[in-house]
Simulated scan of single mutants.
Amino acid sequence: MEVNSQSFIPVESEFFQQPTLNLAEALLGCKLVKETKDGMAAGMIVETEAYIGPMDQAAHSYNNRRTKRTEIMFHESGLAYTYVMHTHCLFNIVSGGAGNPEAVLIRAVEPLEGVDLMIKRRDMPDSVNLTNGPGKLTKALGINMSDYGHPLIRKPLFIAKGQLPGSISSGKRIGIDNSGEARDYPWRFWITGNRYVSRHQKAESVRKP
């Protein structure tokens, strides 16, 4: 689905000044936009996961772990936290405020603009597999490690205003089995019924925003 690029209006910095769990839900329906020399690519955020360190064993900042990789998590909210896992770059949004190392992982988006560019980058036909995972969406949108620390209220990488989803589901996060009791926290959020969600599972709760 192609849309007019003029409809991509960056959120205000205040948008990121909310508790991490609230932000993880509020991001659903917003647009993730990246501009490169090859063109613009954008998608609607349909799935997120919240990570609240230092008490969250699944968070990179657990126990206030401060490393070269996690440094940006200790800065102000609304910055890009990118890191590489299994050769894939993953994209997070710093939250919690300066000194409180928390973040929201963007797990999946629904393509809005630049679909042909996404297809070229992913070297595959147009399908839900283009952007239905955290590593897939970054490659499709052109997000990489050079975006680390970028303020997400301005180009070339930003969060744009969107529409509230009709219903939000929540459940356990994915791929964190070795994180103690944190593996059971229902801190994964997704737009109910959206086909681009990375993994469909029974929701622990469903509500209207």
Results as ranks from 00 to 15, higher is better:
158 F>E: 10
202 K>D: 13
103 A>P: 04
102 E>M: 09
67 T>W: 08
54 P>D: 05
190 W>L: 12
103 A>Y: 06
22 N>T: 12
76 E>A: 12
132 N>G: 01
51 Y>E: 08
170 S>D: 00
159 I>S: 02
14 E>W: 03
113 E>W: 12
139 K>C: 00
111 P>L: 09
85 M>I: 15
90 L>F: 05
189 F>N: 11
79 L>P: 08
136 K>P: 01
41 A>Q: 13
35 E>D: 10
28 L>S: 07
3 V>D: 04
143 I>D: 01
42 A>I: 07
50 A>Q: 11
81 Y>K: 13
139 K>D: 00
44 M>D: 06
76 E>G: 03
187 W>C: 04
144 N>W: 01
123 D>G: 10
200 H>M: 12
23 L>F: 09
147 D>L: 07
105 L>F: 03
85 M>N: 12
44 M>Y: 12
32 L>E: 03
177 D>V: 10
87 T>K: 13
139 K>M: 01
66 R>G: 01
107 R>A: 06
1 M>S: 14
129 N>L: 12
186 P>S: 11
39 G>W: 09
18 Q>H: 04
83 Y>T: 06
22 N>K: 13
203 A>E: 05
62 Y>S: 07
184 D>V: 04
49 E>G: 02
159 I>R: 01
95 S>Q: 08
150 H>S: 10
132 N>K: 09
15 F>W: 07
192 T>E: 13
34 K>H: 10
168 I>H: 03
127 S>A: 13
63 N>P: 02
69 R>Q: 11
59 A>Q: 04
11 V>N: 12
79 L>D: 08
108 A>T: 10
8 F>D: 13
127 S>T: 14
154 R>W: 00
166 G>V: 02
84 V>S: 14
163 Q>P: 00
74 F>S: 10
63 N>Y: 01
34 K>F: 00
23 L>I: 06
198 S>T: 04
83 Y>M: 04
94 V>I: 08
81 Y>V: 03
49 E>F: 02
168 I>N: 03
88 H>C: 01
167 S>V: 06
194 N>C: 15
58 A>M: 05
69 R>E: 02
